[in-house]
Design a protein around this nucleic acid. Structure first.
Lengths: 339, 339
DNA sequence: GTGAAAGCGCTAACAA
DNA sequence: TTGTTAGCGCTTTCAC
């Protein structure tokens, strides 16, 4: 049977569609008597407003797109976990897309996003997009980009201070007396901006301590996952002069590296100290648990949602801002041992 | 500036809306000349069809809701990772909701789902819903439920054979010579149907081997996460007669248990053998890697999407079917050691 | 407080 | 092949 429409309700209740609409939305004041009649009709027909039709009139969809490279990357999963309830509290549904880091797909997404009206705004964590790609985005699309970038003043960025955080992580290892510190995760090409910031912090810490950087210890990896961490660690340990510590650009990379180190019979942290980045739950349960840089994910999620909804709600385009969420270093057994 | 509408394009191209619609959707044949005119106008105005309006006419939203208890549970993240591209290939967007396992929220979701028209169908992985709750669902909603259940004949179920898989996991431990085998994850209440199936398999394996079950080794946990695994393991190891093996109802539980065992100085698997369930990537990288039951996630995702889209496409209600995806036991070092 | 009617942007039956 | 037009189901201006 066809779903009941507002018209059906009006007919049954003996009132006009206008009145039904008033009752449903609580817009205008309605007589108690009329309201009762309408509500009875609604119940009897099992009427539910058609969201699509309503949205068409309002010119908005009530949906927020969240685009991440990989859903099974714990960092993104944990972020989404925080984004979804926040959006729901503010009346928005979350539409998820994953790009697999495919630049084509990512570009396509931000380009066509604007007018489609399938979603009113977007929170986007790009992987294969350069600054240029992002500049080409339709500025009328309410957009918040995750991860630190040089702001172009058009949309918002939400992230932590990657350079400072990486400097702290590296300084932590230096402070522990380590001198041959490797870095796993550099991405020396246009789309690797985030990785490059971390490398910069790594260098700064060395400079601050008056130590040289052994460039051969800076290992690039295409992705920030376990497999890449394992591979890089293997190459590092095959050298005649392996490192005594490693700064990994994500916890996943650190977990992959840890796996290889233990497999080779190294003691962590005695022979090799390890620190990661992201503070995913998995790192708290690994053996040993891994030290990490913990970004304030709740703040990042909340800010991203709030900013994009503010943009949606605003009639005139808001200037793009750069938001830096807090972070802190969490020392665990992979660097400080059982101390 | 207001977005261009189909009407604007028609005006500019000097044709009727009908013709523009034809060009956009490739419905009827259009003269090359006319087509060119229209396309020029589209390009000039930067016209994009309004999806909302189109959907209103079609009476469908082109969206598929996927509801999971927790997004940051790797098993669900990995499943979603497979569901999203499959749905996209078939022209559907994925709308995600997480319920935190809240029965109220879950019940609410399946109840109101039907007519809202925000999504055309739903793939649902319930946690706090009993068979009764599910039976109350509007049968006109194209729905696929994840996880094994007794079918009620109304909607589809997709899962693996939990009893058989659990029997194999337990038999694997028995075959290794273990005799005091604990089980972590039972849920002896109406909403714990899935857990109970695993307990049943655990028992069957004992019966098959002519061994008694020590009921005090069956440990219930409210959730299937790391913290619950840790807690249960702690209680188990505090006993005077700790187990020599553990069957965990999820890899996350196993990882939590492993963490505690190693912390207490136990050797795994020499002192304690561990097997999990789900085959999440994390278990392949833990130290030692954990043996597990590996469900065919790709098949589960593909089947779930296909079934729900078939239901959406069908005019008359399809009978509910029970789909059993394949699974296999993956032995790793947490049970077989470095053999 | 309630009704009549226009219109959100699109599709598709019906005509021409 | 193309134009005219009536909705899809809802909100809301304008009258009463």
């Amino acid at each position: 049977m066809r779903d009941a429409t507002l018209r059906d309700v009006a007919l049954l209740a003996g009132v006009s569609p206008r009145t039904v609409s008033n009752v449903v939305n609580g817009y205008a004041r309605v007589t108690d008597h009329t309201r009762a009649k309408v509500e009875r009709a609604i119940a009897e027909l099992g009427y539910r407003p058609n969201v699509l039709a309503r949205n068409l009139v309002y010119g908005r969809s009530g949906q927020l797109a969240v685009v991440v490279p990989y859903l099974d990357t714990p960092y993104f999963a944990e972020l989404l976990q925080a984004i979804i309830p926040r959006a729901r509290d503010r009346g928005y549904n979350v539409l998820i897309d994953q790009t697999d880091g495919d630049p084509e797909h990512e570009r396509d997404l931000v380009r066509r996003a604007g007018r489609a009206l399938l979603f009113d705004g977007m929170i986007f964590s790009p992987l294969g997009l350069s600054q240029d790609d992002l500049t080409a985005v339709d500025p009328s699309l309410p957009l918040v980009v995750l991860g630190e970038r040089v702001s172009n003043g058009v949309f918002d960025h939400v992230g932590i201070d990657d350079v400072a955080a990486s400097r702290e992580a590296t300084a932590h290892l230096i402070g522990l007396g380590r001198r041959r510190i490797a870095a796993i995760g550099d991405q020396p090409y246009p789309t690797g901006e985030a990785a490059q910031l971390r490398t910069r912090g790594y260098r700064q810490a060395h400079t601050d301590a008056g130590l040289p950087v052994d460039e051969s210890l800076v290992i690039p990896t295409p992705r920030f996952n376990r497999a890449d961490g394992s591979g890089a660690m293997r190459r590092l340990l095959d050298r005649p002069d392996p490192p005594d510590a490693v700064f990994c650009y994500s916890d996943l990379v650190a977990l992959g590296a840890l796996h290889v180190a233990l497999e080779r019979g190294l003691r962590v942290p005695e022979d090799l100290a390890l620190i990661g980045y992201d503070d995913i739950e998995e790192g708290r349960y690994s053996n040993p648990p891994i030290s990490t840089i913990s970004p304030d994910k709740a703040a990042i999620a909340a800010t991203a949602v709030d900013r994009v909804l503010d943009r949606i709600g605003s009639t005139e385009p808001l200037p793009g801002v750069e938001v830096r969420a807090a972070h802190r270093l969490v020392p665990r057994r992979s660097t400080v041992g059982r101390g």
